[in-house]
Design a protein around this nucleic acid. Structure first.
Length: 270
DNA sequence: CTCCTATCCTGCGAGC
DNA sequence: TGCTCGCAGGATAGGA
């Protein structure tokens, strides 16, 4: 799925498409049994409303209207694309129709994504528990230290905890820890303060570079305009098991942590 | 509390 | 070819 850079890339694409704040003429539901049932009746409140902006919080997208906001999480395989009016294809679950022959289509083969409707983002249950944005001042070496220094869980799992910092998923967690020289399995409480202090800037570096590259395209992720991102060619460890470390040439290893594949160089990362 | 596992679901590539 | 298996970007419930 999309991690923060992919979601941010989608957001920017949608913002361009919706720059004129078009009014929603109709919404169509083809399947409502995704992760949680789509609240079709609530979402119909969009009809007749202009979409005034598309915001991002963590890996969530918020389509704002004067009447409330559509909340979208892409899960593992969700995507938004702009299309001319046409029949829905397989796995197209939801469509937003505008007047000028334009529609936005939500597609999600695995149906792990979320669609919901809310009035106030600060109160929405899925948003209220989220930790700081990685680019916000509230995320810093001190806040991360508080999350790490008593916990026995692998540092990688802690970085992927949305209550610690939002937006760091499985790919970028491995990439960040490679740059930090830390093994993904290192218990949080075994990090020194100076090791901890390296992480927030590196998280910003990796996520920032990935956003600039238009995200990483693996499998079925595409931007709203259908183009691919480019960051996957710059992975240093992710999905590179058995290939040489770009720094020392040692073979990259894979280890399952918290049920997710993690990749690291056993020589560069301790 | 914290942690670990399993689970939701479809598609794809590897290996036979 | 065609089959089976393992694995895939996330979030969360439930048990230890």
């Amino acid at each position: 799925m999309p991690e923060l850079p992919e979601v941010e890339t989608v957001r920017r694409g949608l913002e361009k498409i919706l720059v004129e704040k078009p009014v929603v003429e109709d919404v169509r539901f083809h399947r409502r049994d995704i992760r949680d049932p789509i609240p079709t009746k609530k979402i119909r409140a969009m009809v007749g409303q202009p979409i005034t902006s598309v915001e991002r919080r963590g890996k969530y997208l918020l389509f704002r209207t004067p009447a409330g906001f559509l909340l979208s999480h892409l899960g593992m395989t969700g995507s938004w694309r702009a299309a001319a009016q046409s029949n829905p294809k397989d796995h197209d679950h939801f469509e937003i129709h505008f007047g000028n022959r334009l529609k936005l289509v939500y597609r999600d083969p695995r149906r792990f994504g979320i669609l919901d409707w809310g009035q106030d983002p600060r109160v929405h249950p899925r948003l209220a528990t989220l930790g700081p944005e990685p680019f916000a001042e509230e995320f810093n070496s001190e806040s991360l230290w508080q999350a790490l220094h008593r916990r026995a869980a692998p540092v990688k799992n802690i970085l992927m905890d949305p209550e610690v910092v939002v937006g760091v998923g499985n790919i970028y967690a491995s990439e960040v820890l490679f740059r930090a020289g830390l093994r993904p399995s290192r218990p949080g409480r075994r990090l020194t303060k100076s090791e901890c202090a390296k992480l927030p800037p590196l998280i910003r570096d990796v996520l920032g570079e990935a956003i600039e590259a238009g995200g990483s395209s693996i499998s079925d992720y595409v931007q709203a305009n259908g183009e691919s991102g480019d960051f996957q060619s710059r992975f240093r460890v992710y999905d590179r098991e058995g290939q040489p470390c770009v720094v020392c040439g040692h073979s990259i290893r894979r280890q399952v942590l918290g049920g997710r594949s993690s990749f690291f160089c056993s020589k560069c990362q301790r």
